[in-house]
């Protein structure tokens, strides 16, 4: 009866039905698998780590005599590296992005710079570790020190800052620039007073992402900044001594101390406690980057709306 009619409600052929069913099942299996993995990973880290986490662990230096374990030195070293890296990376990265978006007229030079940036961003950290060790620790005579680690991280995180800054510079409406130039300001003056202030949140996003990479990095710092777990001496009695100590300080950051706990001391309880700290930092950085990124997006959308009208 139905055979001559072609109906749009006609059921799919058996083959297609099987294919559809299989694909749908695969989709849900993949999604379920990944969600289960995520929940397990985070749950397991928290489950193993939180019982070993205490204020004392976070706020004290390890001491064999008093039987105290603590990661305060690692926290301070991590902060030191973050600040030192940002001090160098900010002007370099922002300047580079400004050159690429505002000044560059030579197409060949731009493509060379962009190729270099992409190469840097695809380079594995172990290469930065090797080169950092050779260049900063040995050739420049900085020795194994946090500052050498920071310099190596500058090489590694430069592309991150350049890319995010470039993106946010592109969101600044062209009319702002034209308005400023038409009023007689020079290019640098225009960049300083108009372009940079309106792209500040992109730069902030870049910094946050860079901090994320710095906190998560271990190979580079293991090679260049050392694996010592004791508090480095940052101070000194005379000014010269202070400079020597402050810029020569070496030690492990959070990730490196996790590695030392897990691999060299087989002290997994404390390794997981450090993992919880790192997890929390990753979470905070993610949220911060999202917030800053949202602002840029809104601006971009607002800009587009204006253009559409």
């Amino acid at each position: 009866m139905n055979e001559q009619k072609v109906s749009i409600t006609e059921p799919l052929s058996a083959n297609r039905r099987v294919w559809n069913g299989t694909m749908r099942a695969l989709l849900y299996i993949a999604a379920a698998l990944i969600c289960a993995l995520l929940v397990f990973l985070i749950g397991y880290i928290l489950y193993r780590g939180i019982p070993n986490l205490s204020w004392e662990f976070l706020s004290s230096e390890e001491s064999v005599i008093n039987d105290i374990e603590g990661i305060l030195p690692a926290i301070i070293n991590t902060l030191y590296v973050i600040v030192a890296t940002l001090i160098f990376i900010l002007p370099l990265g922002v300047g580079s992005a400004i050159y690429l978006t505002e000044y560059a007229t030579n197409k060949k030079l731009v493509s060379v710079i962009e190729f270099a940036t992409e190469t840097l961003s695809g380079m594995p950290s172990i290469i930065f570790a090797l080169v950092g060790m050779m260049v900063f620790c040995q050739a420049l005579g900085l020795g194994t020190s946090l500052i050498a680690g920071a310099f190596s991280l500058v090489m590694m995180t430069l592309p991150t800052i350049i890319r995010t800054t470039q993106e946010s510079l592109k969101t600044v409406p062209q009319s702002y620039r034209e308005g400023s130039l038409a009023l007689g300001s020079g290019k640098w003056h225009m960049i300083r007073t108009v372009v940079l202030p309106s792209s500040i949140d992109g730069i902030v996003t870049g910094c946050i992402l860079a901090v994320g990479r710095i906190v998560g990095e271990s190979a580079v710092l293991m090679f260049t900044a050392g694996m010592g777990m004791r508090m480095a001496n940052f101070g000194g009695d005379t000014i010269a001594e202070f400079f020597d100590n402050f810029f020569g300080a070496a030690g492990s950051t959070l990730t490196v101390s996790l590695y030392v706990y897990a691999k060299e001391r087989a002290d997994f309880d404390h390794a997981f406690a450090v993992a919880v700290v790192l997890l929390v930092i990753a979470l905070v950085i993610n949220l911060a980057a999202k917030l800053a990124g949202k602002k840029t997006q809104e601006k971009l959308r607002a800009g587009n709306d204006k253009n559409d009208r």
């Binding site: 998560g216 271990s218 990730t255």
Partner: peptide, 13 residues
């Protein structure tokens, strides 16, 4: 978040 977790943490787990 998974992308932001340091590689040593994956190694540890």
């Amino acid at each position: 978040l998974l992308a932001g977790i340091p590689s040593v943490v994956y190694g540890l787990v």
